[in-house]
């Protein structure tokens, strides 16, 4: 391979990384909002992503043929719809389970109480992924359509040989991810609801003094968090096949992004997810495929051990 070919590979990976990274970034935003507001590490976040994927898959299988938008655009619409659907699941789950061990109640639990929410979400993850196996089956499925296999050619960029192929489905997904993130950031920054969630995150006691129902704020934050990650899952679903266990590897990818960006910051989480996407794709040029995720995990360990506050953390604008 000559230098130009390396360049082409690199550009190709970079573009793919940015597109994948935008989707990871979206999922990271979902995770970080839960941590930011509730100080809860949600182990089951990957499983909510999985739920978003299967939501898109089943809706597509059932209604795909009648789709108003036609088969091409319908998967993306369903991905967005996965948000509200999983939001409801999250709100329900928070009311039934999570609420019992977080916030002020969690503080009352003795000794291990500190970890009660961590272990509880681990239990939820186990039930969801294994229950998923029962409900959805173990064979990989996908919501791929023509767009998933089509690409725009960009170039030639350098000389007459180096051109980059941009996957169409990924591009649409990445743009949608960006729109959702910006929309959500505006909700958090501009609306009264968003401000009250941030106030609850900053100081739950003081938020109560203001008349904010902190339990409700937590419930909404949990719903938003899992809903947003589910949209990310729905968008990824048109990309690659998946099965019910897919959550486990993605939960680390998400945490890597979130920790990279500084726990609790929306902007940081998105940039962190974006960086992880790029890292994953670019490392694939020199490393074997199986080690892609290992690179991410090792990266994650290095970040968390040496710079746990992250790199993109914008201390003053946390949510």
């Amino acid at each position: 391979m000559d230098a130009l070919q390396y360049l082409e590979n690199f550009l190709q990976s970079l573009v793919a990384g940015l597109l994948m990274g935008a989707m990871y970034g979206l999922m990271c935003v979902g995770l970080t909002i839960i941590f930011g507001v509730m100080r809860v590490i949600n182990f089951a976040q990957g499983e909510f992503m999985m739920l978003g994927m299967y939501f898109a898959y089943f809706c597509f299988a059932w209604f795909g043929t009648y789709a108003f938008f036609g088969g091409l655009w319908f998967p993306f619409f369903l991905a967005l719809l996965a948000g509200p659907a999983v939001f409801l699941v999250g709100v329900l789950l928070h009311r039934l389970l999570i609420n019992a061990v977080t916030g002020r109640r969690g503080n009352k639990l003795e000794a291990q109480g500190h970890y009660a929410q961590l272990v509880l979400t681990l239990g939820v993850a186990l039930v969801l992924q294994n229950g998923g196996l029962f409900l959805f089956g173990s064979s990989p499925v996908s919501v791929a359509n023509e767009l998933s296999y089509s690409a725009w050619e960009w170039g030639p960029v350098v000389g007459d040989r180096v051109s980059v192929f941009v996957n169409q489905a990924q591009t649409i997904s990445a743009l949608l991810a960006l729109v959702v993130v910006i929309g959500f950031a505006m909700l958090m920054n501009k609306s009264r609801l968003g401000k009250s969630l941030r106030a609850s995150a900053d100081n739950p006691d003081a938020a109560i003094y203001m008349g904010i129902n902190v339990d409700r704020a937590h419930r909404l934050a949990f719903g938003f968090g899992v809903g947003i990650t589910a949209i990310g899952g729905g968008l990824l679903a048109s990309n690659a096949p998946f099965q019910p266990y897919i959550g486990t590897e993605y939960v680390i990818i998400m945490y890597a992004g979130v920790v990279l960006g500084g726990l609790g910051s929306i902007r940081g989480a998105f940039l962190g997810g974006l960086s992880i996407g790029v890292l994953q794709q670019v490392s694939a040029i020199i490393l074997p495929n199986q080690l892609q995720n290992t690179v991410i995990f090792i990266c994650f360990l290095i970040i968390i051990l040496f710079r746990p506050q992250g790199f993109f953390g914008n201390k003053d604008r946390t949510a």
Binding site: L120, F134, S138
Partner: peptide, 17 residues
């Protein structure tokens, strides 16, 4: 097929609660 995992998950949720 995932019954083991579900049992472990339910067990730990029940214990925590």
């Amino acid at each position: 097929p995932g019954i083991q995992g579900v049992i472990y998950g339910v067990a730990i949720i029940a214990v925590i609660l």
